[in-house]
Design a protein around this nucleic acid. Structure first.
Lengths: 303, 303
DNA sequence: CTGAAAGCGCTAACAC
DNA sequence: GTGTTAGCGCTTTCAG
């Protein structure tokens, strides 16, 4: 009897109200995702990875962009909590200004997983890339090719990732005796435009390094624009390497040697960690992914 | 008194349960977004545009990917309805297989806005690009440069966009007397890999057209790979133009002449249409955006 | 102005 | 098996 009624209801186009179900069961089947910028392919691919694990499990994603704005981040986190998401996946804002908000989330036992970036000192699950290791590999490669002077287009200096990558460059250069003049360290502001300006400045210098490290995919795009515009010959005038692989690295002329992250993989892992927390309430897991080196043709062999 | 309590509650870290509020008020403040593929920068930018209008209004986005899979689309739509989203923004699956589901949504008065693609014959708001017009402009440009033979890497032939763009090419060629041999029409399957294979096949032909039209951004990437790999000289061996502008079109050597859509703009408009429907319950609005032509250096002037 | 009660759509627990 | 009831966290209404 009961079944007949249910059948009939379905046929008549009835949908259970998941909001009500959620209210009753205390399970909304919604996961909140906080991302700096959806339109960056890197994050878009992470999202794709997350989708791949959540979809089959009947979970859905509530998406928030922060645009690297700490206030927006704070407000978005409040909303996510208010929506009673079952967990939060977050790539926190560059500045790391909302430490106290994140702390509250952790304390209130809402499952929290950081990806790509962390807020240092918080006991949460996270998956990040080995930034120092990856960039160090790039520098070592340049050294091995005989480069003894190096410039770098950096991320915003306050950001976690920015600090890691810059310190990785400087440490390794120091170790290998590679020259990095003050004026060769250029702030690319984490953006395409910023990197474009930075690269133009560098290319105009009389005294240039023989190699250039670019700290992410978007900035590489800006550097490429500057290269084309100023008719710089890579790798003859200068050798260029990049953190991150992106569509454009492969088809640029010359194709860019880089260390690649695997954003989709990162999303997959972050999502899996979340499911782990939700299902087994296990302890925080920490994963550091290796960036893998891809040799292409943007570095010259020095005599 | 009441206020003091509310203040105290806030201080103690209280968050109203929006699910409960939603249940009571019948307003969830959630908009469902259905997208084929988040990791395609084109859609990611659309999302970004949508975010920009919804965020300030306190609306949030529930995101679903279909991967061009009609079943997944159907299931996602059901879930969105079950979540009692206030409206649905959708770029329907290529095949357009879920017409009846969309019909139901329209009939049940859930605000629905299509973007990028439509299901023909449904009375909904939508914002799309003038596919035929845009691609026709590309062909006219080639003609004006003296090209009288043309190949084309097409989208999946069943898709709405695919049909529009291909028919746009053929119609214009017909009109201008441009030769398009059967074997120059290559199915790029809407993907990078598909286009890569297609372009390789074309480049191996003995009898080649002097110009090539590529039907979207992702496929252009595949064609670029083939160009590099087979050492094809653009525009001397063949001239290439693309529908869509993307990061990579500008920095390729040579930079690619194209017609550009404005995805962020499209997202903005779709979101605004949705707000219109929600606030004023006005009638469906239809917008067709012009693609704008960008001349770069991938087309040769024929004698 | 404050307090009590009803009810949004559902499920879980219990009684029949 | 099926039917009834209470209550998830909130807002709204109506009474005091």
């Amino acid at each position: 009897m009961r079944e007949k009624i249910l059948e009939f209801a379905k046929a008549k186009g009835y949908f259970p109200d998941l909001a009500a179900v959620g209210l009753r069961k205390g399970k909304t089947k919604i996961i909140g995702v906080l991302i700096p910028d959806v339109s960056n392919p890197f994050f878009a691919q992470i999202l794709h990875g997350m989708e791949r694990v959540f979809y089959p499990l009947g979970y859905h994603l509530l998406l928030c962009s922060t645009d690297e704005n700490a206030e927006k981040e704070e407000e978005n986190l409040r909303t996510l909590l208010s929506q009673r998401v079952e967990g939060i996946l977050a790539a926190p804002t560059d500045f790391g200004g909302n430490r106290s908000t994140y702390k509250k989330i952790v304390d209130s036992n809402v499952p929290l997983v950081f990806f790509d970036r962390i807020v240092p000192g918080l006991e949460t699950s996270y998956v990040i890339t080995d930034n120092e290791g990856g960039i160090s590999e790039l520098v070592r490669y340049l050294h091995q090719k005989g480069h003894m002077s190096l410039g770098v287009v950096t991320l915003r200096s306050r950001s976690y990732t920015g600090k890691m990558r810059l310190s990785g460059v400087l440490k390794t250069c120091d170790e290998l005796g590679i020259l990095v003049k003050e004026e060769w360290i250029l702030d690319g502001c984490s953006t395409r435009e910023g990197a474009y300006q930075a690269a133009k400045k560098l290319f105009q210098l009389k005294d240039k390094p023989t190699s250039l490290v670019v700290c992410n995919n978007l900035m590489m795009l800006g550097v490429m624009k500057a290269i084309k515009e100023m008719n710089v010959k890579v790798p003859d005038d200068i050798s260029v390497v990049s953190f991150d692989d992106s569509y454009w690295d492969e088809i640029f002329d010359p194709p860019i040697t880089c260390v690649a992250q695997e954003p989709e993989q990162m999303g997959l892992i972050a999502a899996t960690m979340m499911m782990d927390l939700l299902m087994h309430g296990s302890k925080p897991t920490k994963t550091v992914l290796k960036a893998h080196f891809i040799e292409r043709a943007s570095v010259k062999q020095m005599k």
